[in-house]
Design a protein around this nucleic acid. Structure first.
Lengths: 162, 162
DNA sequence: CGCGGTCAGTTGGAAAATCAAACCCTCCCC
DNA sequence: GGGGAGGGTTTGATTTTCCAACTGACCGCG
């Protein structure tokens, strides 16, 4: 019974895959969980220590990430029951997000060279990730982008843009 | 007076630029704010509507992002005082994170072709972002990465890795 | 002039999430 | 049988979030 509106009202935020993705992995600690499992740390106590999250919150996040298909929970020992968490394919495909965030942090949050972690690429060099356009290979710069919302009523530069 | 430890304890999470970056932009709505200002929507009410955030929370986030140097707050009208928010250089450099997240969401959260937003690159094609190694140009795949923590006591695959 | 609307927030109070510490249970090792 | 490790859950206090209402400066309309 939702009457179609011209202008989206207060209760219908912009439909958007960024928002949808963040609904899954945007809660506190979720991306840090992913960082750890991508680093190969798969166990609950390890995660608690390395992330610094409260145990109960971490347990909640892990359930959510498993439900979302980003992590798997595998038994690595019955008697006593013990589990490990690993990234799924979908989880691994979030690693670029982590690398991009890390690069940003390295660049803007520490001018000097105290990078707390260096990632090596198989080509032999330190990984400095760039986001590029798959079609033309050029690095993605803001000025080169034009957004086209697919749903009606949504603008990208309000009618009152300066 | 922090005694140096071999194994990091419960109260010293892994030092990491991912965590540092998320401390700034990882709170709920922060990246959506950035999405909107990158789209050219600069005003408070516009942000409230398009993001769907409570006004008070949004006000808090905006202050934080401005303090962090990710957004600027510019007066666009005295009498009545009115402000607009724009991304700084640092803010714009987070756009690749957004694009990467969006691509992931498009791929994993909607198998069919109902992408809610399409971004066009200046090369004329739809933007499909890839994260590549700046040195060799190859797309970043998990298997090609090796992490080297720079602080002592931190491992990347716990001693009990399977 | 008075009425309604836009804009950029602030305020107040209830509901939900976070946090830290303690607890539980099952094993293993000595 | 005492002390770990491991993987959580429980409890209760503290923070955040959320929502609706309110403010205060203006504008346009009749």
């Amino acid at each position: 019974m939702a009457p179609p509106k011209d202008k989206p009202g207060p209760k219908d935020p912009r439909p958007c895959s960024i928002a949808d993705a963040l609904a899954l992995v945007g809660e506190k600690y979720s991306l840090l969980v992913l960082r750890e499992v991508c680093l190969g740390n798969r166990r609950f106590d390890q995660l608690v220590r390395n992330i610094g999250a409260p145990r109960d919150v971490l347990a909640t996040r892990l359930r959510r990430l498993v439900d979302a298909g980003i992590l798997t929970r595998r038994t690595y020992s019955e008697h006593p029951q013990r589990f490990e968490y690993r990234p799924t394919e979908a989880g691994l495909e979030l690693e670029p997000v982590l690398m991009t965030l890390m690069a940003w942090g390295d660049r803007h949050l520490r001018k000097d060279d105290d990078r707390p972690m260096v990632v090596e690429h198989s080509c032999g060099n330190e990984l400095v990730p760039t986001v590029t356009c798959t079609a033309c290979g050029a690095p993605v710069r803001h000025e080169d982008l034009t957004a086209h919302p697919q749903a009606p009523g949504w603008t990208v530069t309000g009618p009152a843009a300066a």
